[in-house]
Design a protein around this nucleic acid. Structure first.
Length: 512
RNA sequence: UCCCGCAUGGUCUAGUGGUUAGGAUUUCUGGUUUUCACCCAGGCGGCCCGGGUUCGAUUCCCGGUGCGGGAACCA
């Protein structure tokens, strides 16, 4: 394949959301797979929607995900600037070319006049209410006004836009790598605004000009762009660039969990999961949105999950590192249907990745978290606790809650278990075991297991029958980590004390 | 309303003109674990509907329905 160049082109109108991350990921993977170049371009042509901090947020988020661009405004590159607000003269130049070749025209209609036109068309039950090849002849533009009038308008600083002159009758064929051929009639297209009255280009113009100038070979983006591709193809043609036009691939959208509509922040809030990679504080409302990172998701899990949203490897492999994805990815394996966001699946991925995380690392986090609530924990026992708990948690922070049994005496005891399991015999057996344990110093879990078994067997009691009660004595609850491991970390002496103390608390419930 | 797209268990998906339609997740059950979890095994559950082509259609074609996207001086 030719020298592949792709771009991720977000606009800094807020935090980058999960759908954007997926688009960035697929661009990145496609670039890596084909030994191409991944470019980050900031599309900040809308001055009204500009949000402070959004651009740096986007960069930080991509960084956290490991999707590092090869070219960007920060990193540089041979095709800059990579920010559209810094490319205004370039667009001006090209729109002039379109004006000169009669593919674009000035339009002086005010927003009120446009509304009026649409209202009128609605009343006449026109099939659509567009500014297009038929309606433009009754509007105020350089097609209907004389050359002198146009000059006069411009000279007197009347606001105007530059619109694209869509041909009346033409079939526009577009090819999409994921969807195949699509045919659209130009009569259904409107005369898109190319240049706004503030002198900034619209997305349509800027994106074509930049993709051409930056030698983009493949445009990979969300399906919401599919309807505007015909206009884009026409633009390439009018600018004389159709031969080198990039190939298109429109990704299926990520939908709300219930499947009705594009995934939105609102929907994510409602369903109780994050939508932004990192925490985001909206500078306008001051609302803080919790990010995937801060919720405890690992970037590897997020990326792995996202990679399988609309793409599949064609094999049954599910766990992929970014590196593996770079080798396995292909646009041909991207499917067409929209994808509902399933929070259970990403939780599962997180669990998988947490298990492969270094215990020392998790232990450090655990120590810090415990310190916040006033518990001191040595590194060595923190590592032991992590080892014991690692495969039972979804988020690293779950460790803190689960490890509380090592630092706090149980206060509540699972009554169901106590009522069912606590007999005089159980009581005696556990007391006996506690006594034996009180005489020991450090023991491994395996040694404790043996000791437990021998002690109970010698007393003629089935060890299995007292297990649940032992758990309640040690932790208060009826489920939790391996008991022998718990006692090892607790130390035999402490375990012994705790068993006796707990028995004392519940002994009034002994049944005969 | 118009334009465009899409349709395999609840969810993510593989796949085929003839298959017991495969995997993952979720959930349930059993096994293992003298405890809990992991793990292992199993169960429930699916080709949107109608027509056509065909010996045979989930697969190809047409229509319908449903769902999604778009219809800005937003991207």
């Amino acid at each position: 394949m030719e020298n592949v160049r792709v771009r991720f082109a977000p606009s800094p109108t807020g935090a980058l959301h999960i759908g954007g991350v997926r688009t960035a990921l697929f661009n990145y993977l496609f670039a890596r797979k084909n030994r191409g170049t991944f470019i980050l371009r900031i599309e900040d042509t809308d001055q009204n929607r500009f949000v402070d901090g959004a651009e740096s947020y986007i960069k930080e988020a991509l960084n956290w995900c490991g999707l590092i661009p090869d070219e960007s405004s920060e990193i540089g590159g041979d095709y800059g600037p990579y920010k559209q607000s810094e490319r205004k003269e370039i667009y001006q130049q090209h729109v002039q070319h379109l004006l000169d070749s009669d593919h674009a025209y000035y339009a002086f209609d005010t927003p009120e006049e446009l509304d009026e036109m649409r209202e009128k068309l609605k009343e006449t039950k026109a099939t659509n209410q567009q500014y297009n090849s038929v309606t433009r002849m009754s509007m105020k533009n350089s097609l209907t006004l004389s050359v002198e009038e146009v000059e006069e308008h411009i000279k007197s600083r009347q606001p105007y836009v530059i619109r694209m002159k869509i041909p009346l009758k033409e079939e526009v064929r577009i090819h999409d790598i994921i969807r195949g051929w699509i045919v659209v009639h130009s009569s259904t297209l409107d005369d898109k605004v190319l240049m706004k009255s503030d002198g900034f280009p619209t997305y349509h113009l800027a994106n074509i000009v930049d993709d051409h100038l930056m030698k983009i070979t493949h445009v990979i983006r969300g399906e919401e762009w599919l309807p505007s591709v015909p206009s884009h193809v026409l633009l390439y043609r009018f600018l004389g660039w159709e031969d080198t036009m990039p190939k298109f691939a429109h990704l299926p959208l990520i939908l709300k969990p219930d499947g009705n509509g594009k995934l939105s922040k609102r929907a994510a809030d409602k369903a109780g999961f994050p939508i932004f990679p990192l925490n985001w504080k909206d500078p306008q409302t001051n609302d803080l949105s919790q990010g995937f990172k801060e919720e405890g998701y690992l970037p590897e899990a997020l990326i792995n999950f996202l990679s399988l949203l609309g793409w599949n490897p064609g094999t049954e492999q599910e766990i992929f590192s970014l590196k593996e994805l770079e080798d396995a990815f292909s646009l041909e394996q991207v499917n067409k249907a929209g994808t509902k966001f399933d929070i259970d699946k990403i939780r599962w991925f997180n669990e998988q990745y947490i298990r492969s995380l270094d215990s020392g690392l998790l232990a450090n986090q655990l120590i810090a978290n415990l310190e916040k609530i006033g518990h001191v924990c040595e590194k060595e026992s923190a590592v032991a606790i992590v080892e014991l708990l690692k495969d039972r948690i979804t988020f690293p922070s779950d460790l803190t809650d689960l490890s509380l049994i090592f630092f706090e005496e149980p206060i509540f005891f699972d009554e169901k278990v106590v009522r069912k399991k606590l007999t005089a015999e159980t009581n005696n057996a556990l007391s006996l075991f506690a006594k034996v344990m009180s005489e020991k110093d450090a023991l491994s879990a395996e040694e404790i297991r043996k000791l437990f078994s021998i002690t109970l067997n010698d007393a003629g009691i089935n060890p299995g029958s007292v297990m649940q009660m032992l758990r309640v004595c040690l932790s208060g609850g009826s489920s939790g980590p391996d008991l022998m491991g718990v006692m090892q970390i607790l130390t035999p002496k402490k375990s012994s004390e705790r068993i006796l103390h707990s028995l004392d608390q519940v002994k009034h419930l002994i049944k005969d």
